[in-house]
Design a protein around this nucleic acid. Structure first.
Lengths: 339, 339
DNA sequence: TCCTTCTATGAAAGCGCTTTTGACGCCTTG
DNA sequence: CAAGGCGTCAAAAGCGCTTTCATAGAAGGA
């Protein structure tokens, strides 16, 4: 059953049926209802390919990643993706998850040329990310999860990383901590810079030192968290508190702390950033972890909306959001032993 | 840059250019090379929508799931999906992950009507799954991950669940166990039936009893694994060994065992089915778990290939595979205490 | 030399939809 | 009563590709 047949059945022209289905005004209420009833009866919905070709819109939001690291294996990413797809589905849009077999530039070029996506979302932006200007040249709207440090305006949804980590550090300082470590994510990524800035500014503002030995950067995995924390604990002046950039690093950090014969909370305080992924809950940890919290799932949902706005013609400069982050106090933060 | 412009640039007709690009034989080697060179130079690739409309193929494999449970949050599913997308990408196909907002029947109807997918993969099949005949009526090729018990032939890739669980039980029997519990998945699912059959047949063949009290079914989560195991341990005749249908149930089962003051291996043997997901490794467990192993990631990869075969016209009856399952002996299985 | 058979190419007809354009009847208005 | 406006629909021109069919010229056989 296609439009032509449906029109013939109704004794109407294709154009009238099409406009009736698409909610145009210049069709009488009477015929509109007849059309809608027939469409329902015959279980008609328009052919996706034809619709796309005619409108020039693919109805697809793309997300590209290097093929060497599959993000579907990363719970953070899948939680984000889950929000993205659900929200996109509500707007009749699909998500195209594409592994770039060659360079990511070539992948974007191909997507653009083929017209397979209306917009793309860009994850894990670098400080200066070449993908943003590339996509602009290619004419594909793009929304960044996070944000670059570039002056070039682009659509983004970011959380207040700097504020969150400043608050976390301030909480620890308020409890009496003077020597606070940071187990951060990959230093090339924009968010990691912001978090370090927040941490450092709280310490300096309180007249404390923020030496590089107290700040480590690496991927946000259990192993890296363990390694960085173990390194700090083994140093001449181990920290009395540690702030971790992810729940995974925090798990590693906690392991390192325990392996050093120390107790989390009473010996060493721990704060972790929690993206709210469903598989790991910081309140179920023992002891329950104090966290800076922002749901990455909800970010995914919102980013699909922003992408839709962008496709609808909204300018990137109007599509910039920074979400506040909650600081949730639990049992892993206490005053330092010495106080 | 589209086909028309490219053809104009070359002083050729669209049809010739199209045929050159698509590798038809009736175009001279000379022009073919000119065309390919120009396409490369102008970074041309055909518009996806137009191509789809013209060929009638969408180049998309669909996978539908109920919107109430988001499978993207399930590591088993994402690992499968990861294999599926990678393998599909190699064949220039995309995966459409679609949440069915209403009934799954309506979703499939819509996909069919819109022509948005060339084939679908069907996960978690029930014993008699209505989706299989539905898709057949709709004319959408479909490949099942697992298989139904229906006599109706359909394309599938399954693992030898029955054999795997029989072997697992036989291993335990060989070690001297006489009272072996089964912590199974949802009893409505086809694979759970096969696993129970395997477990039961090994016991009966060895002249042992296989009462219902030793076999529990539920979702394959940590919590359910804990509950079922705790129930068995609290019974008048607790098992000396337990076989779990997933690594998640096994984690719960181990917790229950420890909470009962028992030691895994020496007090109670444990075997788990391991789908090889990247986030949880049974060999890193303490003690390392004996497993029946089959990579769900590789199943995903293979299923994309089968879907491609189906689209290419292969008959469903020719597309049926049952993979053997490895039994990997580790430290969680030992002879029972009493022996 | 003429007729047939290939070979390489072009013209054109779709694929199923959207959207522009224009026609027709009816109602208003001066 | 003629001119214009409005509401309702049909016709037709794309969107960018594939594919069938036709055609020109080259090659081959008699």
């Amino acid at each position: 059953m296609n439009l032509k047949e449906l029109a013939r059945h109704l004794g109407l022209s294709q154009s009238t049926v099409s406009r009736a289905l698409n909610g145009y005004q210049d069709v009488s209420t009477d015929t509109r209802e007849r059309v809608l009833a027939a469409a329902r009866r015959f279980d008609y919905s328009p052919n996706a390919s034809a619709h796309r070709l005619a409108t020039g819109h693919s109805g697809v939001i793309g997300i590209v990643f290097p093929s060497d690291k599959d993000p579907l294996l990363d719970p953070l990413f899948t939680d984000f993706l889950s929000g993205l797809t659900n929200s996109a589905a509500r707007r009749q849009m699909d998500i195209l998850v594409s592994a770039s077999l060659d360079t990511s530039e070539a992948s974007y070029r191909r997507l653009a040329q083929r017209g397979s996506v209306d917009a793309v979302v860009l994850s894990s932006p670098l400080i200066e990310d070449p993908r943003v200007p590339l996509l602009e040249r290619l004419g594909i709207p793009c929304v960044v999860h996070g944000r670059t440090k570039s002056s070039h305006p682009h659509a983004f949804l970011d959380i207040d990383n700097e504020g969150a980590f400043r608050q976390a550090a301030e909480l620890l300082i308020g409890l009496g901590h003077r020597w606070i470590g940071l187990v951060n994510g990959d230093a090339r990524q924009a968010f990691a810079v912001d978090r370090e800035t927040g941490w450092r500014s709280a310490l300096l503002r309180a007249g404390l030192e923020a030496p590089d030995t107290l700040s480590g950067s690496d991927v946000m995995t259990d192993e890296a968290g363990y390694r960085l924390t173990a390194g700090m604990l083994a140093s001449a002046a181990p920290p009395s508190a540690i702030i971790c950039s992810s729940i995974f690093s925090a798990i590693g950090a906690c392991r390192a702390i325990r392996d050093n014969g120390l107790t989390i909370g009473s010996d060493i305080s721990v704060i972790a950033h929690d993206d709210g992924i469903s598989s790991i809950r910081p309140e179920a940890h023992s002891p329950p972890l104090t966290t800076t919290f922002s749901s990455i799932h909800r970010a995914g949902e919102r980013i699909a909306e922003i992408a839709a706005d962008l496709i609808g013609g909204k300018s990137p400069a109007e599509c910039q959001e920074v979400w506040p982050v909650d600081l949730i106090f639990r049992d892993s933060t206490r005053p330092p032993r010495s106080v």
